Amino acid sequence: MTTFPMGPALLFCPGDRPERFGKAAERADAVILDLEDAVAPRDKDAARKNLIAADLDPERTIVRVNPLGTEDFERDLAALQQTPYRTVMLAKAEDGPAVARALAGFTVVALLETALGVVRAAEIASTENVAALMWGAEDLLASLGGESSRSQDGTYRSVAVQARSTVLLAAGAFGKGAIDSIYGNIPDIEGLEAEARDAVASGFAAKACIHPGQVAAVRAAYMPDPADVTYAEQVLAEAKHHGGVFSFRGQMIDGPLLKQAEQTLRRA
Rank of each mutant, 00 (worst) to 15 (best):
E71D: 14
A30C: 10
V31R: 10
K23Q: 08
L77N: 11
P14I: 00
L68T: 13
D29T: 06
R48I: 04
D76F: 08
D72K: 09
A25C: 09
N66T: 04
D43Y: 04
L33G: 04
F73N: 15
D72Q: 14
E19A: 06
Q81A: 15
L56F: 14
N66K: 13
A40E: 05
G15R: 00
D29E: 05
C13N: 09
K49D: 09
R17S: 09
A78F: 13
E36I: 03
K44F: 06
E59Q: 15
Q82E: 14
L33C: 04
P58H: 04
A28R: 06
Q81H: 15
R20A: 14
L33W: 02
Q82N: 07
R64T: 07
I62F: 02
R17M: 01
L56C: 11
R64F: 05
L51H: 11
P58Q: 06
G22V: 01
D29L: 02
T61A: 12
R17A: 10
A25F: 01
A28T: 04
A47K: 00
T83P: 10
G22N: 14
R20Q: 08
L51I: 02
D34H: 12
D16W: 03
K23R: 10
T83I: 08
C13F: 08
E74F: 14
L11E: 01
R60H: 10
D76K: 07
D55G: 12
E26D: 09
L68W: 12
L33A: 01
R48E: 06
R42N: 05
A79N: 01
E36W: 02
G15P: 01
D57A: 13
V31N: 04
P67L: 03
Q81T: 14
A30R: 01
R20K: 10
G22D: 12
D37Q: 03
L35Q: 11
A53E: 14
L11S: 04
L35G: 04
T61Y: 12
D55W: 05
T83V: 12
I62E: 02
K44P: 07
A38L: 12
I32R: 05
D57N: 15
F73H: 15
D57R: 11
G69M: 09
I62Q: 04
A53W: 11
